[in-house]
């Protein structure tokens, strides 16, 4: 059985089905990107893996253990950073380290925190509060916090979607580098196919919602470390991108929407202007369709 396994997972909120029949298996040490349209249910999917929400049907297992609740064996980097604003960078990470490794000595905890701050190049901002940091820096803190608890799997929920293009590229490189260093199993949720292909070993598109499901898995056979500039010229990169995007767009076109609408015609008969108006006919204008009791139709036979 795979390291992380989702079997026939479905989830609906109210009457709308968000995810339907999700099957996913990820091996240890893999970097898998899941691409999907916004609103397709990507965050729901990662919340199920994280254990923050329970699937309606189907099972999610990590290391053969069913996921029933969130836990520090799955580190999450949230889309909106989710740093505690009353704690500094150091304190935010320390809270996590302290919680997961309560038996460590204080010096060891401190060293561990410092190591992770350094890993995301934030040592100068160590004592700053989140509000004093830029979006990119905040997300780095979030990544550092996610890694500092040494999770078995790192879940990245659209970590870069709120950032500008340049910062995004820099952080992509950093995620790539950190991943090379730590060899963690990573699930990246993104809405950018390029980002998925650039970072991941495998990319799986999520069809458009509602009732989204996972498409076929595309293996990215470009060796690490990848060069951002060179990668654009790889034939396999171009083909992969075309395939993924095509699949996603097709999944959108496949949906036939049928809408039934009740049409109500105005309850009024057109006035026949060829008939001269008389005093008696005045009162009967406008004539209602519902008032017409009988109709004479002339048929030529």
């Amino acid at each position: 059985m795979a390291f992380l396994e989702l079997k026939n997972v479905s989830k609906s909120f109210g009457t709308s089905t968000v995810l339907k029949d999700i099957n996913l298996s990820i091996e240890k040490g893999e970097f898998v990107a899941i691409v999907g349209f916004s609103g397709a249910g990507k965050t729901t999917l990662i919340n199920i893996i994280a254990g923050l929400i329970k699937p309606d049907s189907g099972t999610a297992t990590l290391n053969d253990l069913e996921i029933t609740e969130p836990g520090p064996d799955r580190g999450i980097v949230f889309q909106n950073y989710s740093l505690l604003p009353w704690l500094t960078v150091y304190e935010n990470i320390f809270l996590a380290v302290d919680q997961v490794n309560p038996n460590w000595t204080k010096a060891k905890k401190q060293e561990h925190v410092e190591k992770h701050i350094a890993m995301v190049n934030l040592t100068p901002a160590r004592d700053k509060f989140p509000k004093e940091l830029s979006g990119g820096m905040r997300q780095r803190v979030s990544v550092a916090r996610g890694l500092s608890i040494d999770p078995q799997i790192l879940l990245l929920d659209e970590p870069l979607s709120a950032l500008d293009a340049l910062t995004r590229a820099t952080l992509q490189d950093e995620i790539s580098r950190i991943r090379e260093e730590t060899h963690k199993t990573v699930v990246l949720i993104t809405n950018d196919p390029d980002e998925g292909i650039y970072l991941a070993d495998r990319i799986i598109p999520l069809t458009a919602g509602p009732g989204a499901t996972l498409g076929p898995s595309f293996t990215v056979d470009i060796p690490h470390p990848r060069d951002r500039k060179a990668i654009n010229h790889y034939e396999s990169f171009k083909k992969l991108r075309r395939d993924v995007v095509e699949f996603m767009l097709n999944s959108k076109h496949d949906r036939h929407h049928s809408i039934t609408r009740k049409l109500v015609l105005p309850d009024i008969e057109p006035e026949d202007l060829s008939v001269p108006r008389t005093m008696t006919s005045w009162r009967k204008i406008p004539r209602r369709r519902s008032e017409v009791k009988e109709e004479t139709v002339e048929v030529d036979l």
């Binding site: 923050l52 520090p72 799955r74 949230f78 009353w86 809270l95 919680q99």
Partner: peptide, 26 residues
């Protein structure tokens, strides 16, 4: 989000209260 952080870290009820909820409510 703050409560999710507490959940993921599996903070105890007391720690969730003192480290997350009270500061957020202050």
């Amino acid at each position: 989000d703050y409560l999710n952080v507490a959940k993921v870290l599996k903070l105890s009820r007391w720690k969730t209260l003192t480290k997350v909820m009270i500061p957020a409510t202050l």
